Amino acid sequence: MKKILNLAFAFAIATTFVACSDDDNNNIAPTTGDLTVDFTGLEVLGADFVYEGWLIVNGSPVSTGTFTSVTFPQTYTVGIDDLQAATTFVLSIEPAGETGAEALAPAATKLLAGNFSGNTASVNSDNIVVDASGEIKDLGSSWGKYILATPTDNDDTNEASGIWFLDNANTPAIAGLGLPTLTDGWKYEGWVVIDGTPVSTGTFTYVDGADENAATSPYKGSVGNGPAFPGEDYVTGSAAGVDFPTDLKGKTVVISVEPSPDNSSAPFALKPLAHVVPADAMTFTVINMVTGPLPILSGSVTR
């Protein structure tokens, strides 16, 4: 009888211990949580750069991880305290394999941003453009004009082989682009798509000054660098399998927003302005551009 009582007592103790252990396990708070991102319009960056998400927690950035795939939605595991305390989400473009202090904070190329409202943050690319007062603007109100001309050579038979983003309706000529000022880490770039291949006209920050390759362009003529506005003469050399000079009528003209630094040979996803050069376009005559295929990037983040 004593043996049976001892066994019963031991069983009761074991049952109580297991029950308490189960209760303790059920009461353990999770240390991580899921962050799901769903973005529209992102494009593959190539081998040298990656996208990286960031939570802003008490004013400091906390990485949510890097990615290269642009198939969404994607989900990432994040520390629960940071996830719950975050007020803002930021998506940046970073050098692949970045280490050291620079890897602890987002680069200047912050592409998307938005504040959390409850468990969701609506993000967009408006944060990359500002006006003169520093107020954030969007690219949707951008406008553009251009002319066909080749001012860097003395040949008047190839004027349809150059494009300049200016308005010469009156003298002197004025800027042909209405674009907001970009924040650090971004530049504008002009393109002409020739037989399906985009060929750059050069990068620029200001619409009323020459672009950055004005003096070094491999395509320009030998008579100066052209007017002090963004643009390009395609009068020497070749690109996209086409020998210059050529005829830009029927070709597509694009203005894109590019991360800086950037080593891509194609326009970035943000394209606020575009236009197909009319087949009957007259040289030295102002032509209006229209809104591009993607003036804004957007998405959502859920915790």
Rank of each mutant, 00 (worst) to 15 (best):
K251D: 13
N213A: 06
L55G: 09
S142P: 01
D131M: 05
I136M: 04
N58K: 07
I296Q: 14
V254R: 09
F284Y: 15
G100P: 04
P227H: 07
K271P: 00
S133E: 09
A175N: 12
A274L: 00
D22Y: 10
Y234T: 05
A281D: 11
M1Y: 10
E98S: 14
S222G: 12
S117E: 14
K110I: 07
D247P: 00
S161C: 09
G114F: 07
K249H: 02
N25Q: 09
N119M: 05
L112D: 04
F17R: 04
Y76M: 09
F72T: 09
D208G: 06
A214D: 13
P278L: 08
T236I: 00
K187I: 13
N213Y: 05
A175C: 08
T285M: 12
G221C: 03
E135V: 06
W164V: 04
N213M: 07
S69A: 15
E189A: 15
D48F: 01
G114H: 09
E232A: 12
V207W: 03
T302E: 14
W186S: 08
K251P: 00
T16E: 03
T32W: 02
Y206F: 13
D131V: 03
D156Y: 08
L177M: 08
S260V: 10
G162V: 01
D126I: 01
L273F: 07
G162R: 03
E52C: 01
M282R: 11
D233G: 09
V257H: 06
K3V: 11
P73H: 13
W191F: 05
G196F: 10
T183G: 07
T285P: 05
T16N: 07
A96D: 15
N263K: 04
G196A: 13
V193T: 15
F17E: 06
F9I: 14
A173R: 05
A121W: 08
G224S: 08
S265P: 02
P30A: 10
T64L: 01
A149Y: 12
V301E: 08
E98F: 11
D195N: 15
V37G: 10
G144E: 05
V286K: 13
G33L: 02
P198R: 03
D184H: 03
A228E: 14
F89C: 10
V50P: 01
S21R: 08
G144Y: 06
K220L: 08
I80W: 01
G224Y: 10
G162S: 03
L104V: 05
N154H: 00
V130H: 05
K3T: 11
D156E: 11
F284D: 15
T152H: 07
H275M: 10
A96C: 02
K2F: 13
Q84R: 15
E102C: 01
T75F: 09
I56T: 12
N168D: 14
A160R: 09
T120D: 04
A281H: 11
F244V: 03
L182S: 12
T291P: 02
T236V: 02
